[in-house]
Design a protein around this nucleic acid. Structure first.
Lengths: 347, 347
DNA sequence: ATGAAAGCGCTAACAG
DNA sequence: CTGTTAGCGCTTTCAT
């Protein structure tokens, strides 16, 4: 069914080598032969056999993306788009290696992508810890890899959440706010030694740094140690919103909808009475008519940057590719409509 | 760097064939040699070369997922998870073939995944029309493919939106509603002959069918021919909510947040005064405290079903794989908290 | 129970 | 300008 170089060669009356050269445009071929070869190739619906070529060239031209999915962790479409666009520009293909929860639990397992030596390099997007077997595979077997969304000593690309939180909080301070609360309904930040994603610490640290800078007392809104289930977030919000010493601004992380909803229901105007700044804006459509102010996660840029760094490592044909310094991706401030100076006493 | 069968063979003092057999467990090997081979493999950190194996076996063991991304179309994580889990259970790998907007516009382009014959079969998830060149590649070159989220004469798997809308509307009717509106802020359904995704027609048709069944007049809430921009959806909702003959229930498609928001702001209680039924629930966390009633899209099930059908086609080693009848995936009704009997006159 | 030979489709190196 | 040779790493077939 599939035509090969040999088929074309026989059809035209040359050898496969000549056909190969003609189709790739390397070497010198007479215009006549070349044309006859191209014609035959089209007529026979020839498509090169990528695997054979890869094998001959000693590289697969495939990059693997290792990722885990659980309830909270997803693979954002813009991230995927950035990765694939950048790979395509260098004629690489992308192969997906999902690691299931079961595999995470059970030691010694790794996806076939890893076991079977199919990728020239790996992109690793993990929120939670990978099993040791996989890390070992990567580190000891010297598979060129780049960590995404994760801080490592080297070869990693991650969002600069600390800087984002710092800049965002500074913005609120510059607007004149003094009672600025850090709102976290999901992750209790009490014991900093327990394993959490780096961004949980960094965001909070950035907020605290900005508050300290301005000699303002940090204050947190969270249900310490337990978090706030999504069914109670608006109700929970109404509670702190109606306190007399309520903050005039809150910094949150992706949970802006319940806050907006609650504000409307207790009669607080946003941003006149309450400013809301979200540290995790993405490309999803806004849920309400209001464009929320905050820091945008350039997922596509992160994907592109990770690929560029991986391909850079792959380009060093030597034995062990050089490690590359960590790269922090700047987040982008988006003004939006939910931040304004705090209400004046006269209001 | 990478150890091969030959390396192990030399180390142990046998031929590569024996090593191959030992590692795969085929053929009869003496327990002693087998053990020495396994030891050596581990010591040398052997990993089989997937491409070489694939080439020898005449199949790549790779399935390609062709998809397009634009602003509205994404690749849902549960879909990806379903696809990959099902593939992994059959030892297939997943390769991604994103088609960019530019490629869609320019004729004659196809991803390397297609050009280079890297996949044994294809899953195609397209919202908008694919360029003819790709369709041709698939249909004329007989690449086994399954269409996802799209209606075709055969080899397709899609959500049964018509049935979902029918069942959802019936549910509202059974609750006692008579003024049930179909709300669509995005797609003007005026000229049924213009190209739109099948689900746009099917959902509306299902709603109309249910209304006709009950001798109720269908009514639509939409900005005919223009749609409603996301910055005006709550405002637009407030308008129809405050009319005297307002519907007591609305059927919508993923735009429930502005409706909830608007209802709160005009003092309509949900579901007491207004029932909301969303035809497109997904796994995203609810934006507010309320769990919206509606039809859930089992993306993971669709992914699994598509893979099963594709692998079934691949299993027929004959020349042209048999076409497979279309498969409509049933959507799942989720009660939620936004549907109730209509308010009584006395209320 | 093990080995020898052959070949999947393609391309690099060297001839001519 | 074109052909010959060889081999990437693996597995199937046939022989011993």
């Amino acid at each position: 069914l599939a035509a090969t170089l040999k088929d074309i060669a026989e059809d035209v009356g040359v050898t496969p080598v000549t056909v190969s050269r003609a189709l790739r445009g390397t070497g010198r071929i007479s215009a006549d032969t070349r044309q006859r070869i191209l014609d035959a190739a089209q007529r026979l619906r020839y498509r090169p056999h990528g695997l054979a070529r890869s094998m001959r060239q000693g590289r697969t031209g495939i990059v693997g993306l290792i990722f885990t999915t659980d309830d909270r962790a997803t693979l954002p479409t813009p991230l995927l788009a950035g990765i694939q666009d950048e790979l395509a520009s260098q004629s690489y293909e992308l192969m997906l290696g999902k690691i299931s929860k079961a595999q995470l639990a059970e030691p010694g397992t790794a996806s076939a992508l890893l076991r079977h030596w199919m990728a020239d390099g790996l992109l690793i997007n993990h929120q939670i810890d990978l099993p040791g077997s996989i890390v070992q595979l990567i580190e000891e077997d010297r598979v060129p890899a780049v960590w995404m969304n994760s801080k490592h000593a080297c070869n990693c690309v991650y969002f600069d959440d600390a800087d984002a939180a710092l800049r965002a909080t500074r913005h609120l301070i510059e607007l004149g706010h003094r009672r600025i609360a850090y709102l976290d309904y999901s992750h209790p930040i009490e014991r900093l030694d327990q394993p959490e994603h780096y961004s949980v610490y960094d965001r909070f640290a950035g907020y605290v740094a900005a508050m300290n800078e301005a000699d303002l007392p940090p204050q947190t809104i969270m249900n310490h140690g337990k978090g706030v289930g999504w069914t109670q977030r608006a109700a929970f919000s109404r509670e702190w919103m109606t306190r007399p010493d309520r903050p005039t601004a809150v910094v949150c992380y992706g949970n802006n909808a319940p806050v907006l909803f609650a504000a409307q229901s207790v009669g607080l105007r946003v941003p006149d009475d309450l400013s809301i700044l979200d540290l995790s804006l993405d490309d999803a459509l806004p849920v309400c008519d209001v464009r929320v102010s905050g820091m945008y996660l350039p997922q596509e840029a992160l994907g592109r940057a990770a690929v560029r760094r991986l391909l850079q490592r792959l380009a060093t044909d030597g034995d062990a590719p050089e490690p590359i310094n960590p790269l922090a991706i700047d987040m982008e401030f988006r003004p939006g409509q939910t931040c304004a100076p705090p209400p004046q006493p006269g209001d």
